[in-house]
């Protein structure tokens, strides 16, 4: 068992330090790059918090849709092949819901301020 603080806490404290103490003192192109860097750390924070739950429910849905077991990568490969071949399509019960939920879970990590995501969440 690793000691504390947790990775979540460490990433957050670094991002907050850069945002609150360093960013105001940086100008020009490096200010832009620093902002991208802070965004990356915030993304990592969200992924550390959300990935496990999202992956588990994605895997459960994929197993139900496909009727087979496997790693998340294998299951996504199998689903992709079945969509490409036309064996599964938007008429397939559960497929659209699965793609929507999976995509919403990705946006929650990647880009929670993206306009389409906020609209679909019903918050904008």
């Amino acid at each position: 068992m690793q000691d504390e603080p947790t990775p979540e806490e460490l990433v957050k404290v670094v991002a907050d330090f850069l945002r609150n103490e360093i960013a105001p003192a940086i100008k020009g192109h490096n200010a832009f790059k620093l902002r991208v860097g802070i965004n990356a750390l915030d993304l990592v924070s969200r992924q550390l918090a959300l990935e496990q739950g999202g992956d588990a429910s994605e895997a459960a849905r994929l197993k139900r849709l496909l009727g087979v077991d496997g790693s998340l990568l294998e299951l996504n490969r199998a689903l992709s092949e079945k969509i490409a071949s036309g064996e599964l399509d938007l008429q397939t019960p559960g497929l659209a819901e699965h793609l929507w939920q999976t995509t919403m879970d990705k946006l929650a990590v990647d880009q929670p301020n993206y306009g389409s995501y906020k609209r679909e969440l019903g918050t904008k």
């Binding site: 993304l43 995509t103 946006l107 990647d110 880009q111 993206y114 389409s116």
Partner: peptide
């Protein structure tokens, strides 16, 4: 990490 934007 912006490719998911195009998926939604």
């Amino acid at each position: 990490r912006r490719s998911s934007e195009t998926e939604i």
